[in-house]
Amino acid sequence: MKTFCQKWWQRVISVDMLLVAVITFLASIAGSYAKRFPVFSLFGALIVALLIGMLLQFPVRRWYTSSKSVRQLGVKASAGLIANKLLRLGIILLGFKLNLHVLFTQGLRSLPFAAAIVALTTIGTYALARALKVSPLLAVLTAGGTSICGAAAVMGISGSITVPADQADEKENNEVMAVATVAIMGTLFALIDILIFPLLGLTEQQQGIVAGASLHEIAHAVAVGGAFGETALAAATIMKLSRVLMLVVAAIAIALWWDKTQVKEKSSTKRKIMFPWFMLGFIIASVLGTYVSALHTHASAFVDVAYIVLGMAMAALGINVNFGAILREGGRAVVASFLASSLLLVLTILVTQTFF
């Protein structure tokens, strides 16, 4: 225990960690503030924090790490630790956003629809991405972000997947590429929804259901639902949160599938499957936030903290991202997500017109 504590003390208490922590915290706060404005509201706080982190990579390299390689390694390790640990904490705290009582009463019809959407879109997007020669990890992260809830889903699924140490940098680059992809697609299709909804003859409730069922980020669904009235906003929110609930099942299923099909270990000893325990924390937070009155009244505060923590994780990813890798590998993932998002929009419109 003493050795363990000393090891973590050395990793956490350092000038490099302090620098990265301050930078990522300020980036996260800036992202939360920027989302109040019309253009940035479509992207959301997490995407803005990621972009700030990517931009700050240049002055950090020029002014702080350029003269000493040990500083480069320290900043990289600190950013990696923040991205890894805070994303799990943020996902757990995000559970307070899920009101299970609302979902299991008002959203009862939405849950089966959400389960079908997530399953079909995850499998379909992954298949499209692999057909386009996208790597398995980037393909599954893009599929999760497209089918469930954007950046939070990418980070949640990534947190449930374990890769060898020599692939850690590649994993971080894939996280950034997947997050950027679903941000672009979500924003694009939010604008498409606003343009085409008046032409389809949908009721206000149907407009909200389609928005919540087809768009990527919660911010996208809320923005489109709010553009068509209170009924549409309520329907979009319930439908979107129904999909968010599926993140738990999807993350666990993908973790088990990844371990079985993608992990290649030559050792004959029995392997330990890396179960994403933090997703159980997400469920516990949802239950506590819904049914414990003392916590229910403060649920919004916990969610605010969740977005600050997740924003720090996203900014840390931005600090470490390899721009060359994104330019080389990201294009095919964007195409796969666009095709899947198009099919998802058509499917949700047809199902909503038929059953809702």
Rank of each mutant, 00 (worst) to 15 (best):
residue 65 T to M: 04
residue 342 S to L: 08
residue 70 V to Q: 15
residue 325 A to T: 13
residue 73 L to A: 12
residue 222 V to D: 02
residue 107 G to C: 03
residue 92 I to V: 13
residue 289 G to Q: 02
residue 93 L to Y: 01
residue 222 V to G: 00
residue 29 I to V: 14
residue 116 A to C: 07
residue 174 N to V: 02
residue 255 A to E: 01
residue 24 T to H: 06
residue 105 T to R: 05
residue 145 G to T: 01
residue 15 V to A: 08
residue 318 G to S: 15
residue 34 A to V: 09
residue 48 V to P: 15
residue 174 N to K: 04
residue 30 A to R: 09
residue 283 I to T: 05
residue 60 V to F: 15
residue 199 L to Q: 12
residue 270 K to T: 06
residue 140 V to C: 15
residue 288 L to K: 00
residue 345 L to M: 06
residue 157 I to P: 03
residue 73 L to S: 11
residue 240 K to M: 03
residue 130 R to G: 15
residue 116 A to L: 08
residue 325 A to G: 11
residue 254 I to R: 00
residue 204 E to Q: 09
residue 214 S to K: 01
residue 321 V to I: 13
residue 46 L to H: 08
residue 341 S to I: 00
residue 242 S to T: 07
residue 311 G to A: 05
residue 48 V to I: 15
residue 39 V to Q: 15
residue 65 T to Q: 07
residue 262 Q to K: 11
residue 195 L to D: 09
residue 141 L to Q: 03
residue 121 T to D: 05
residue 195 L to P: 05
residue 49 A to P: 14
residue 63 W to I: 09
residue 317 L to N: 11
residue 72 Q to C: 10
residue 211 A to C: 04
residue 176 V to E: 10
residue 198 P to W: 13
residue 322 N to H: 11
residue 124 G to S: 14
residue 24 T to Q: 07
residue 333 A to V: 09
residue 44 G to Q: 00
residue 48 V to K: 10
residue 134 V to C: 09
residue 111 L to D: 01
residue 67 S to A: 14
residue 179 V to H: 03
residue 201 G to R: 13
residue 286 S to T: 05
residue 320 N to A: 13
residue 104 F to P: 02
residue 180 A to L: 14
residue 252 I to V: 12
residue 184 I to M: 10
residue 328 R to S: 10
residue 233 L to S: 04
residue 253 A to N: 07
residue 188 L to E: 08
residue 73 L to K: 10
residue 99 N to T: 01
residue 2 K to L: 14
residue 289 G to D: 03
residue 342 S to W: 06
residue 350 L to W: 07
residue 293 S to A: 13
residue 10 Q to P: 04
residue 172 E to W: 08
residue 222 V to C: 00
residue 212 G to I: 00
residue 5 C to W: 12
residue 37 F to G: 10
residue 52 I to P: 07
residue 46 L to D: 05
residue 279 M to I: 09
residue 289 G to M: 03
residue 303 V to A: 01
residue 194 I to S: 10
residue 272 K to R: 11
residue 3 T to E: 13
residue 317 L to E: 06
residue 255 A to C: 06
residue 59 P to E: 05
residue 101 H to V: 00
residue 224 V to E: 03
residue 150 G to R: 03
residue 279 M to D: 02
residue 84 N to K: 14
residue 167 Q to S: 10
residue 318 G to N: 15
residue 144 G to N: 03
residue 147 S to H: 05
residue 117 I to W: 05
residue 332 R to S: 11
residue 180 A to Q: 12
residue 15 V to Y: 11
residue 137 L to I: 11
residue 74 G to S: 12
residue 102 V to K: 02
residue 166 D to K: 08
residue 204 E to N: 08
residue 91 I to P: 00
residue 48 V to G: 13
residue 241 L to R: 01
residue 355 F to R: 07
residue 312 M to V: 07
residue 236 A to S: 05
residue 157 I to N: 00
residue 186 G to I: 00
residue 300 S to Y: 06
residue 291 Y to H: 05
residue 247 L to N: 00
residue 66 S to H: 12
residue 199 L to M: 12
residue 234 A to L: 08
residue 253 A to G: 06
residue 87 L to F: 10
residue 225 G to F: 03
residue 188 L to G: 03
residue 88 R to K: 11
residue 156 G to L: 00
residue 345 L to W: 06
